[in-house]
Amino acid sequence: MVASIGNFTLSRVRGLGDYAIFLGLCAASVFSTRRLASRVARSIYEQGFRCLPVILIVGLFTGLVLGLQGYYVLNRFGSEGLLGALVSLSLVREMAPVLAAIMLVGQAGSALAAELGIQRNSEQIAALDTMGVSSHGYLVAPRLLAAVVSFPMQTALFVVVGLIGGSLSGSLLLGVDPGVYWSSVERAVKEQDVRECFTKAVTFGLLTISICSYQGFHAHRIRRATGARAVSAATTKAVVLSCIAVLAADYVITSFLV
């Protein structure tokens, strides 16, 4: 019993250490990898443009639901005029960074983990190493740099679409005056809220993309599975760990910034 707890703890500590080394190698390779800009641009396209539809759809429905729920709660206290503040603060401070990150994990993160896993299986990563090309720099660093750009942009877009969704359900369906709604939004959102939103977006982007990359990159280390099953297990693990990491980091950041 004690031995198994010890083994479990040691393996987790070893795993964290390995993840830290992986991040260190990725960071160091940024300075030695050639033609990084074009690969960063391609990654921004993959994480940003390709994920636009899901961000727009989820953002819109989140805003619609927030508008509906918010209206009926505020109506009890005769404060429908604060609907814009409720929707905007909920979106900017919590919902947009968290939901956008989870959506991006589902679309871009899972694809990334599977792609790297397949590249590991087909020895493409080993081929890079034998060519003297840093596999961390060529495959992972551009994705991490792209996350720093694409996650805040997607989060901002999520907020805008969510606010429009809240306005649609609050003003168009439930009769809140649009001028009241948008002025309430303007008065409620402060610079500090926006800063918190972007801090979360960047942190979640780096966390999720690094976790997905790490899992895919080391798909060959998955126990009791090889080949396609190892890639599948690595992808599942990447998505689950990323979602947990987003929620845990959200709590930590919020507790520091509130």
């Binding site: 493409q124 034998t130 060519m131 090309v133 060529y138």
Partner: peptide
Amino acid sequence: RRRCSFLFQGNALFDSLTALENVALPLEQ
């Protein structure tokens, strides 16, 4: 690694790159 090359059993070609890009990759990097 500058003086040696390795040909893998399964070729290890990058399927998202064209033949020309595959060959150019070690030179580019």
